[in-house]
């Protein structure tokens, strides 16, 4: 089974450990993983900024890069939503290329969904942490990512202590976090308050953008102890 890893631009630039955790999880499950090195960005920043045509160029680039893979897996619900939902239902809707994007969408999976529902992996216990989980919006509402990461984390030995409003947006929203920074910061602050109200010392999520946003607010508040990880790092035993 040849699995293409779409590592995402943020993981590539900021937290490569998440990419290696995803790689380990997939390889441990017996997948042959390839990383097309020309990959850059799924096009979502342009798409959500109104640069529709440029986002189509990037979507076609991704399509070509993963054409010979049986599956494509990304440690992000946001980029996965872009490729599974928005290319098919909007960008290439009713156009000749739509069929190709339908095919890409069918083989494209967000990492936790792939591990839990396609590979049905058994995760070895590797932690005893008490964690709280932030549901990122695109994964949750576009791809129904909710139970999968929790199931994997529990299998890895983590105890999940749910925060109030775990499904509420953290305020990242890509360029929103810079364009309307004050509102974005307040939304991150609300998230920090809800995290602090649990007894978890670890925040786990599935999208690095949200995690950087929340971690950035935690640190600005002087909280240097709450740890922030992608679920892949936790379940691969690479949260360090």
């Amino acid at each position: 089974m040849k699995v293409g890893l779409f590592v995402t631009c943020l993981v590539d630039l900021v937290r490569p450990n998440i990419g290696f955790a995803a790689l380990k999880l997939l390889e441990d499950a017996g997948c042959t993983v390839v990383f097309p090195e020309s990959q850059t960005c799924c096009g979502q920043p342009g798409y959500n900024s109104g640069a529709r045509e440029i986002s189509k160029v990037l979507a076609r680039k991704v399509l070509a890069e993963f054409r010979d893979c049986d599956y494509v897996v990304a440690p992000s619900g946001s980029c996965s939503g872009q490729m599974k939902v928005h290319t098919v239902e909007d960008l290439f809707k009713g156009q000749p290329e739509q069929a190709e994007f339908v095919a890409l969408a069918a083989k494209w999976f967000e990492l936790s969904d792939f591990l839990a529902n396609v590979l049905k992996v058994e995760i070895a216990p590797s932690t005893t942490s008490v964690v709280t989980y932030h549901d990122s919006c695109s994964g949750l509402r576009e791809l129904n990512i909710k139970a999968q990461p929790r199931m994997l984390l529990s299998a890895a030995g983590a105890t999940i202590n749910e925060m109030t409003d775990c499904e509420k947006c953290c305020g990242f929203g890509g360029t929103f976090s810079v364009k309307l920074g004050d509102i974005s910061t307040r939304m991150a602050e609300n998230k920090c308050v809800n995290i602090a109200a649990t007894d978890a010392k670890v925040l786990v999520g599935g999208d690095l953008g949200c995690l950087l946003n929340i971690e950035g607010r935690l640190r600005r508040n002087g909280d240097n102890t709450t740890k922030v990880y992608h679920f892949a790092e936790v379940i691969a035993g690479m949260a360090h």
């Binding site: 490569p16 090195e37 971690e215 950035g216 607010r217 600005r220 922030v228």
Partner: peptide
């Protein structure tokens, strides 16, 4: 704590710094 052009972010939040090498380099 401050990035030119990104004050919208850094006015209210720090930006966790990149690890130093990209995934593609390490890969």
């Amino acid at each position: 704590t401050w990035l030119p052009g990104l004050d919208g972010w850094t006015d209210g939040r720090d930006m966790p710094a990149p690890a130093g090498k990209t995934f593609r380099e390490l890969y």
